[in-house]
Design a protein around this nucleic acid. Sequence first.
DNA 1: AGTGAAAAAATTTTTAC
DNA 2: GTAAAAATTTTTTCACT
Lengths: 143, 143
Amino acid sequence: MDLIDKKILYLLQSNARMSNANIAREIKLAPSVTLSRVRKLEEQGIITGYEAKLNHHELGLDMLAFVLIQVTGDKDIESLLIAIPGVQEVHNVAGDDCYLIKIRTRNTESLSKLLKEKVRGESISTKTIIVLTTLKETSKLTF
Amino acid sequence: MDLIDKKILYLLQSNARMSNANIAREIKLAPSVTLSRVRKLEEQGIITGYEAKLNHHELGLDMLAFVLIQVTGDKDIESLLIAIPGVQEVHNVAGDDCYLIKIRTRNTESLSKLLKEKVRGESISTKTIIVLTTLKETSKLTF
DNA sequence: AGTGAAAAAATTTTTAC
DNA sequence: GTAAAAATTTTTTCACT
């Protein structure tokens, strides 16, 4: 990983569909070398994938919430949480056997229905944090 | 937005660098029509961008935390939070004038330093949720 | 909104340095 | 490691249904 690789990662984080030729122009290297560097970053697992980002509002998903879920040690809630449509993130967090999930739904009603039907039965307690507005949301890493 | 558009969005969410020719093959339409559909989805703002996903561990960013920040009504902390390197998300959440940020750092030390230097001075209180393990993390939307 | 073909551009592969 | 050239594939445009 040198400075050129870091430049490539920066470019692909900004626009994953940038053509290899354009990346080559930006980093001032031949297209063939550029391509082999990108392939190497993929093979090494430094680049793990490329995702299109969609507009939630346009797709009718206006509700975003984070939910802290407390469970007893013996409950296996993980596979259940992961499988819920709308759940974008599932984290195991420190303290009190807690999970933190990030969930996107159509509205408050669909969120409440989902929590009631799929989560409450498996947990001791849930604490829901409703997002009013999002000011920044990216998976970009600065390093 | 018909079923074909939804299929395109599904494919590009899974692999943003999939070639137009391959998308065309998957949805069984001519490349020219496929391209115009993708362009339309971009122009309509349904596709907002394409991001490469990187391996945090490989880049030395092993720490992930969510921080709830309580501020007084008159403080403008938003632009400050957005500008912090490592802050991937900033949300304004319901209740108690709170912000929720998602932040990635090298270790606990760099997290604590960052909170002390950049956040604490501007806020009434902070509550940090440390992530131990991440079981799911995607921006993919199901609709 | 779709097809198919042709032109332009990009990618992959080979080759040599 | 680098660069250049050839072969292949993809992207893009256009005339037409």
